[in-house]
Amino acid sequence: MNALAPAAPTLAQLPSAPSDAVRLDRVSLAPGGQTVLEGLDFAVAQGSFVGVLGPNGAGKTTLMRAILGLVPPVAGRIEVLGQPARRGQPQVGYMPQAHAPMAELRLSGRAFVAAAAGSIGWGLPLLGRAARQDVDRAIDLVGAGPWAARPVATLSGGQRQLLMLAQALLGQPRLLLLDEPLSGLDPHHQAATIDLVRDIQRRLGIAVLFSAHDLNPLLPVLDQVLYLGNRSGVLGSLADIVTGPVLSRLYGATVDVIHARGRIFVMAGGVALEQDRHVHL
């Protein structure tokens, strides 16, 4: 049982708030038979920006895949936008970590985005009017309009990342799951991506789960943080969660949270947690 679960009534016992984007009731996830997360119990309110943090292997991707209905929970219940999590839920936008073969792709950025538009059903890859407008809208949202006609191979890494973000925005999602969208970007592009996502999130009024290795770039935009580690997780405001005692309890080891010059360093045994991806607690 999760030591971090609140002693008061659990979420399962509270009335379901219809405004929840995601709601997990004592969820355990064990993809491939190996338990990655246990007793997750939290709800993400509609319209909030949540940073998903934790060391490598803490289950950030697994959690997102579970919300997408790709990893069925071995225990507990996951509700997405008021319905049980299921595969192919059109109101959830997803940006998986990039492995797309884009380096040699001569198709235009727009054609790349359009490949993910419309249904996944059989037939020709021809888009109707509505789907074409959806593609245009997604491209405009990420500001890719001026260069979307260029071949993907000639675009920068940051631009390719924006195309994948545009794909996640297809279909007018109400919940956006972004898996490590900052990986491989330099600090300048990281900040630009965060600002863009925050801007889109506010304009559309949608909830965003944004996973990252480092908390600091996200500090200006976060509504809440979800810290994963030690097969568990805690969600709350920055002030409530990113503290020595809470994170020490989460990881079952002494964790220091150091504030310096507007930045936050989460240290375990003298090692910055997010900086060293190989720290195992």
Binding site: R65, R87, Y94, A100, P101, A115, A116, I120, P125
Partner: peptide, 13 residues
């Protein structure tokens, strides 16, 4: 879709 964006296509079912 599966060619250009396999992970996303799989996530969509």
């Amino acid at each position: 879709f599966a060619t250009l964006r396999p992970e996303l296509a799989a996530a969509r079912g």
